[in-house]
Design a protein around this nucleic acid. Sequence first.
DNA 1: GTCCCTATACTCGGATAGCAAGTGTCCGAGTATAGGCGG
DNA 2: CCGCCTATACTCGGACACTTGCTATCCGAGTATAGGGAC
Lengths: 162, 162
Amino acid sequence: MKLSDGVEWALHVTTLVAFVPADQAVPAARLAEYHGVPAAYLAKHLQALSRAGILEAVPGPHGGYRLARPAAEVTVLDVVEAIDGTESAFVCTEIRQRGPAAGPPSDYRVPCGIHRVMNRADRAWRDSLRAVTIAEIAEGVVATSPAHRIEAGARWMEEVLR
Amino acid sequence: MKLSDGVEWALHVTTLVAFVPADQAVPAARLAEYHGVPAAYLAKHLQALSRAGILEAVPGPHGGYRLARPAAEVTVLDVVEAIDGTESAFVCTEIRQRGPAAGPPSDYRVPCGIHRVMNRADRAWRDSLRAVTIAEIAEGVVATSPAHRIEAGARWMEEVLR
DNA sequence: GTCCCTATACTCGGATAGCAAGTGTCCGAGTATAGGCGG
DNA sequence: CCGCCTATACTCGGACACTTGCTATCCGAGTATAGGGAC
């Protein structure tokens, strides 16, 4: 079980976009070059974020992407689910109801115990991701990076928004 | 992100094997037919469980698989990791250190905030799975199934161990 | 009758094809802008 | 000089190949048993 690379990209991109002024936008190509990832492929994931209502796409010249709502209202889980889907990693195929010793469906009113455990774990995972917002991630970046690093990022952003 | 089907099979099989007396064993082919899954493919996963020290393989006639240690000492996480591996679903590729606005590695002494959040969620998931043992799963099956279902299972087991 | 030996059949174990989902890429539809033209 | 129109260039959006990892399968190595033979 490996999480798609796109999830990591989407999280970093969303964090970066959180620093874009509300009345401006950054093109997908610039976001890609900032992170050193293939532009065409990143675009695919940006579309997913747009469909999920996390990013807002602005067409035409001076267009690009920006946050569709405040960073404090976007959780890490929102981004992960936008890329990876909302369904649980574990899918119960009810194999207990198959085979020679199985009975009619009426014998299986109670959900499979294994299913319950896996679902609880999945919920714990999602709860953990839901507890953190992109705003907090962005604050953390500023708080833990050297000053000249923040400055370099700001310069890049200014250059792009020119 | 989808968890391998083999994980579900392994959990059900391990639970079933928990009912096998310590001095006997059930062949892989029987375990497969009980759950209605391809025998050749299930064998692959049984090997993984064997390598992980969860099941013990007994060769030759009257051979098969049995638990390598008490069911109360086998957690759900043990089984999941035996099939799916122990590494986290999220792999941080440090894309923050790439691109035009990046600096030298010395600027990134603090771990990536996104990485930290994802790791915490992964830990929550694993903690949740570690909290439940196969013995508890087995007890749950007995407690929630109709009496005649348990009886049918016992009959099947007796037939196989004959 | 008892012990030993051998052939047998049954078990696991790793090496080998097939397929689906994620990875990576491309070109077409739509829009705000910049320049030119007419008034 | 001002307003309008048109051509342009830039943006996102969805449709198209490729590759890695899971899915599925097979045959070979090893072992406890069952039967037969010798003592």
